[in-house]
Design a binder for these strands. Structure first.
Lengths: 144, 144
DNA sequence: CACAATTAAGTTGTGCACAACTTACCGCAG
DNA sequence: CTGCGGTAAGTTGTGCACAACTTAATTGTG
């Protein structure tokens, strides 16, 4: 008779653990900025280009409005973004950075290095890991 | 002036995305068993050996009692586990499998294959990924 | 033009994560 | 024997994820 699947053999658990460990490394740094990790991700997207619609943000991050709407409300309460109902299409809400939101990108620059330092992997290994994870995520999405 | 960090360069985001994609693949299968992914993880540990204390489960999974206590209450409500206050040490609660909980390990055997099928990676690549993630998680925990 | 199908955003409800705190119990030093 | 430090489990509060649903605006088709 087959064995029950073992926890330590599961790629899925390895992903789940690594992901939580990585955000745990970011947490104290992000605390200083007053951001959670998902909020930081939204800010990353906006720092690249703004304004963005909620749907658009969701496309980049793989999140839906059920997650983003309250998150964006909190970012607005923090004074980092502004939500403006689009004039051309009143279904859309454009997310703009405020001056405070824009200026937060400075202190945020140092954050990724934190993970690299804590990772105990070479830059090559990190690069390869990122590539493999990208392929994996794409394949998993394709299988749904 | 340095660029703001880019989303698509971040290992942390790659981990976060891959982890969510992997549990999304498991979700429909686990739905049939009536389990969430974290509940499935707890069952995996118990199928290896039981009874286990809450602290012990937390050690295996990296979760604290704040997460596990309500989760275990839900597993108990499903009739899969029983929580018994230890007689020798009344601080401890031993988590036992019920007959129903034990018999669920049969249907659960097929689950990991699902991810392997959906992953689009060879068994070798999956093995190497798991190893790298293990090293990464250990290093990240060590850095805290 | 009318109106059904589609789409954007938001809401509601459940279940994690995790911090901070509480409660109850153990074990040990005096 | 008496506390007292430490420990196991549980509780409370916040913030994601995600499913299912609602609302309001737009688009496509006859």
């Amino acid at each position: 008779m087959t064995e029950a699947p073992r926890l330590d053999r599961q790629v899925c658990f390895a992903l789940y653990s690594a992901s939580r460990a990585a955000t745990a490394v970011y947490r104290p740094v992000l605390d200083e900025l007053g951001l959670t990790y998902p909020q930081y991700l939204v800010m990353l997207v906006l720092w690249e280009s703004e304004p963005r619609g909620v749907k658009e943000l969701g496309g980049e991050l793989g999140l839906d409005s059920g997650t983003l709407s309250p998150l964006l409300k909190r970012l607005e309460a923090l004074g980092l973004v502004e939500r403006r109902r689009s004039v051309e299409d009143e279904r859309r809400v454009a997310i703009h950075l405020t001056a405070a939101g824009r200026s937060l990108s400075g202190p945020a620059r140092a954050i990724p290095q934190r993970l690299a330092d804590a990772a105990g992997l070479s830059l090559d290994e990190l690069e390869q890991l990122r590539t493999t994870l990208g392929k994996l995520t794409a394949a998993l999405h394709g299988s749904l």
